[in-house]
Design a protein around this nucleic acid. Structure first.
Lengths: 345, 345
DNA sequence: CGTCATACCGTAACCGGTTACACGAGCAAA
DNA sequence: TTTGCTCGTGTAACCGGTTACGGTATGACG
């Protein structure tokens, strides 16, 4: 592979001149520039971005560290990030913590010297630990994580009020005995959603100990919850799953047991994954623009990198909106219309 | 940020010794190693991977260049790649060609000096162009692309025989007038699938000019196809969409027009995206293990990087398998059972 | 005690670019 | 002619690591 010195020699100039010519930094005569460019073509020289970023102290890359890569949730986030990263000519270096705390540290450390900033989503990590791992000198934006004590910028979803609103809606539809299927115990999103549910039940329905079934955000755990519900003879006229994935499993499990939705029991989820509107009946859920989670975080990071100060905007809370569909007996928008984009569902 | 020289100074040794101690390359006394480690802790030094890869001429990173990041297809590929990359301690640098040829060149060029190898998926690029962009010295594996004249290793899906098999299955179910919804004209996958369909119709049903509706792999184009079908009074007892996404739109459109599936018309797709089994009725389709597309490509690349020779295995063809579900009146496996993983659907 | 192998360690040259600074040429003003 | 600028270019010092090579001290051995 040709290096800059090769090009310089070929063009009969110094490396400095070659560099200037290639980067168009002025101060180069037209003929010499042409000579350099000819040499570039001839040797088909491609600049070595690694070396480049070493001196420039800029990599034009941001590191993205996610807990996992499974499912639409993460792919939507990545897409959102890429959307705005691409506009600014930034690249994405993917890190995956694969659920383990130890790997998280490794993933962050491996980013040193490869990225200009970091986008981290640590859904089940204690803030203190996170602070240890992160390099204070490296601009970092947290995804879906309220840093609390740390004063790192972040963008998060208002899980609490979302869950509250959904519970309220179920109650308004006439449900009395609403059961919640919780997410993983240590997961912050899950805990906030559960709190929102419990508070709504207490404040609105005056029920202080609503039934809560365990779950782990997976489809299987939704199926299991359905079985528990039916076999345990748990009285329920509505079930609110902490995410759509579980709601999908739940509905399948209920159908298996001969329960009809929403006839016998209403069902609601959270996230509005693409699948939700295609179910039959379609799934009522809290719509989160997952891609926006990624794109706004990336925009915040870009502004930090440009040296702007975020000021009050250092924390962005995305409010999910309620989408009433078939599983709560709501306005069931014909799938074809929704798919064609005629309605902003 | 502390550099290696800082550490060396702090520990009272030379940079060479510090480097050796940190990397555990022997030839360092236990006490001096301890001193270095202490300095590392004290300054909390994290090695600068950028600089490291410059001298090592190894980045421990592979570049992944995809045409887009939209939908489950790509996220599954990335997940598959990450799965095996992670095992070998490799990182992923994402490049996105955003559909444009010009961007493709830029994306590839930007990888120079940042990666040890490349995974490229250029579904609508001519081989000659691709050859121009690619650096022959950089190990590259093509995703879902038969390089033909270029002798680059690749892993691809046997779209032709998959489509042939699906068409055959529809005919075996008694369909006579099978309509195909094609994918984007310039897309190789789409063209191969269309060829498989046409050949099967000709050979098995002796129909040489089967009806083919235009599409672009999007859900909307499936809806449009349904409208064309109904309004155009096109006789059809089965519709074979070139991918699942379009099949989903198609089904919604048919339902809108009052057509029942599979009663009035059977429907089949291609890919087996996760959504497929959750539709009601569930979608018959050709199952492609999309994640394997990514993981096998990554494994091939790793072997090349390790200096092994691929030999005959330089081309891997993944054969899709037929999954008969509800939309062709096939064995409709209860969703709950399938979700629980009791059956390997 | 001299010789030599061995094990540790330091000096300095690299990897492939960028860029501060110096230098010479050309030209206008004094 | 001398001074002073500007403009184009070259020299060399970086960026932050790795590593070839050479030096020194130590112990074994004749």
């Amino acid at each position: 592979m040709a290096t800059l010195r090769d090009v310089a020699r070929e063009a009969g100039v110094s490396v400095a001149t070659a560099s200037r010519a290639i980067n168009g930094l002025g101060n180069v005569t037209a003929p010499t520039k042409a000579a350099v460019m000819a040499a570039v073509k001839k040797l088909n020289f491609v600049p070595h971005s690694g070396a480049r970023s070493l001196t420039r102290r800029k990599t034009d890359t941001v590191g993205v560290i996610l807990p996992d890569l499974f499912g639409e949730f993460f792919s939507e986030i990545i897409r959102g990030i890429d959307l705005v990263a691409h506009e600014s000519g930034m690249h994405l270096l993917l890190g995956n913590m694969h659920g383990s705390t130890h790997e998280t540290a490794a993933a962050i450390a491996a980013m040193r010297g490869r990225v200009d900033g970091l986008l981290v989503m640590p859904p089940d990590l204690k803030p203190e630990l996170l602070a240890d791992y992160l390099d204070p000198a490296l601009p970092t934006v947290l995804l879906n994580y309220d840093a609390g004590s740390l004063d790192l910028p972040f963008v998060a979803v208002d899980n609490y009020h979302g869950a509250y609103a959904m519970t309220e809606a179920l109650l308004a539809r006439g449900a009395r005995q609403v059961v919640h299927i919780a997410g993983p115990k240590h997961n912050r999103d899950a805990r906030d959603r559960q709190r929102g549910f419990a508070d709504a039940m207490a404040k609105i329905a005056k029920i202080s100990n609503p039934a809560i079934l365990p779950g782990d955000f997976s489809e299987e755990s939704g199926v299991k919850a359905a079985q528990l519900l039916v076999q345990g003879q748990l009285p329920a006229d509505a079930v609110f799953a902490a995410n759509d994935q579980m709601a999908v499993g739940l509905i399948a499990g209920l159908a298996e047991a001969g329960k009809s939705v929403p006839g016998d029991v209403m069902v609601a989820g959270f996230d509005d994954i693409p699948l939700a509107r295609h179910l039959n009946p379609s799934l009522s859920t809290m719509q989160v623009h997952i891609d926006r989670l990624g794109s706004t975080a990336m925009m915040m990071l870009l502004r930090i990198l440009r040296g702007e100060t975020l000021g009050g905007a250092s924390a962005t809370i995305l409010t999910p909106t309620l989408v009433a569909r078939g599983t709560t007996g709501g306005a069931a928008i014909p799938a074809a219309v929704a798919a064609a984009g005629a309605l902003p569902t």
